[in-house]
Nucleic acid binder design. Structure first.
Length: 443
RNA sequence: CGGGGCGUAGCGCAGCCUGGUAGCGCAUCUGCUUUGGGAGCAGAGGGUCGUUGGUUCGAAUCCAGCCGCCCCGACCA
């Protein structure tokens, strides 16, 4: 992409409403525009990142054996009356009436709908297990939206739903999502720690929040440092095998959000040098809820013994749009964003220091073509802005690498590669710089 | 939903207390000079002061309602 054709409205001054760093940087880098409280337009740069995050989430769901579908944003109120949640949900639910005076709602989640879909087609234990997901916009009319996209009213969410014969089988579905989430967040450049969450009236041990540690996190968390450093199981994990050891390894050590925190247990179970108390951002939540919806909504299957029983369900959410804020919270400096390569809106930023100079233009064009061919998705700053501004903008939008090309260096056939994360600069021949960027040698 | 605050040019703000027809910085446009880390000079354009009503000879300024937004708290992917 050429910057001259792109739409990148960067802000030198920070709009006053933004308090936390990810919100400020997203506004400054021209990634989002607020249209109403908690409702944002995704400008081209932000949209590119959003799509990359979404795609990684999708790939890891698919790898775990979940099946993608897409449910509508608008739902019939009658569906929610079946589960009793239409009245229970309160003003957080956005209610809409259509021209026929039918009650609709903009879905805050999809348990009812997926249960309705499942029950319409499934009759036998032979239809189980099933693991379905979609990635769709949700709306929750938060009393107080804040932190930009981290707590918006409209948000993009991946939600998966599992259907199993009994709790033991449901645990296997749960474990698949548990492992898939670890891989997902690792690919996104995040260290996510699973923390035991409140299971409410269901009870049991099958609910975890996935929390990333960040100074600006919304809630206080406590955990064992060894948990933070524990890697993900890896993309070669056999999701059809026994995943219990994977889960056990990550649930043996202490980790709790403040509402589940027990300081006596924390001190008893965790040596002082491993105790971490920090702030965290919830980016995922997995939950087994048994027959909470299948029973009132009559989603039953016939078991081998001939008896009909409600299916055991779980739901598994990832806040896709929220993740963008979380990633920036985890990866930024005073100059701007520092995108992990996996989600960077462009792979390399090429800075033409003297647009209009025939030789420099040509060198930039050649580098651009070569990097495009190598799949690096370069962004070429071909505008006639001053050098200082170009450097500042490139740092702000946080592309992992910058290739700086100007007439002064070109006289000796040289160009400069800057690694955004570390700030280190390499002066090399232009051909070398392009070749090394193409092969990912600076990673 | 309780408590607090703010709406004046695209963005950041001053002016309001003590009423007299609007200003600063950045951005934008023009010209010249500059040109390797957010340039300099000169000039120009841009605002029914959130909105409705009231008080007044006169309202950005005082009063009331409404709308929008932000912060702290309680609640949530």
């Amino acid at each position: 992409m050429r910057l001259s054709r792109f739409f990148l409205p960067v802000l030198k001054e920070v709009p006053g409403e933004a308090q936390i760093v990810s919100h400020r940087l997203m506004l400054r880098a021209g990634m989002i525009r607020q249209e109403a409280a908690g409702i944002y337009a995704w400008l081209p740069l932000g949209h590119r990142v959003l799509k990359k995050i979404e795609q990684i989430v999708r790939e890891e769901q698919d790898r775990a054996g979940a099946v993608e579908m897409l449910m509508p944003t608008l739902q019939l109120a009658d569906l929610w009356r079946e589960s009793g949640r239409y009245d229970a949900y309160g003003p957080e639910m956005l209610r809409i009436v259509d021209r026929h005076e039918r009650d609709l709602l903009y879905g805050p989640t999809n348990e009812e709908m997926i249960t309705e879909i499942f029950r319409a087609y499934s009759r036998s234990y032979k239809d189980l297990p099933k693991l379905l997901y979609h990635i769709q916009w949700k709306f929750r009319d938060e009393r107080r939206p804040r932190f930009g996209v981290m707590r918006g009213r409209e948000f993009l969410m991946k939600d998966a739903y599992s259907f199993d014969l009994d709790e033991a089988a449901a645990r296997m579905s749960y474990n698949k999502m548990f492992a898939a989430y670890l891989n997902t967040f690792q690919r996104l450049g995040l260290k996510a720690v699973p923390m035991r969450a409140d299971t409410g009236p269901i009870g049991g041990d099958l609910s975890h929040e996935f929390i990333i540690l960040a100074e600006t996190g919304e809630s206080e968390v406590f955990c064992d440092a060894r948990l933070v450093e524990m890697g993900a199981p890896g993309l070669d994990l056999d999701f059809d095998g026994d995943l219990q050891p994977v889960v056990d390894a990550r649930t043996a050590l202490y980790a709790a959000t403040d509402e589940m925190h027990d300081s006596a247990r924390f001190e008893a179970e965790t040596p002082a040098e491993h105790r971490v108390s920090a702030r965290g951002i919830e980016v995922g939540h997995i939950f087994y809820f048994g027959t909470k919806y299948s029973e009132p909504m009559k989603a039953v299957v016939t078991h081998p013994d001939g008896q009909d029983r409600p299916v055991h369900m779980g739901s598994y959410g990832v806040g896709v749009s929220r993740l963008m804020g979380a990633i920036i919270e985890a990866h930024h400096d005073e100059n701007g964003c520092i995108w992990p390569e996996s989600v960077a809106p462009f792979g390399v930023g090429i800075i033409n220091l003297k647009a209009g100079d025939a030789e420099t233009d040509q060198a930039c064009q050649d580098a651009y073509d070569a990097l495009t061919l190598a799949g690096k998705e370069p962004l070429l700053d071909d505008t006639d802005a001053r050098a200082g501004g170009k450097f500042a903008t490139m740092d702000l939008i946080g592309l992992p690498y910058q290739l700086v090309i100007g007439p002064r260096g070109l006289k000796e056939g040289k160009a400069e590669v800057k690694v955004r994360a570390t700030g280190e600069r390499h002066e090399l021949s232009l051909a070398d710089a392009v070749a090394r960027l193409a092969e990912g040698a600076f990673s």
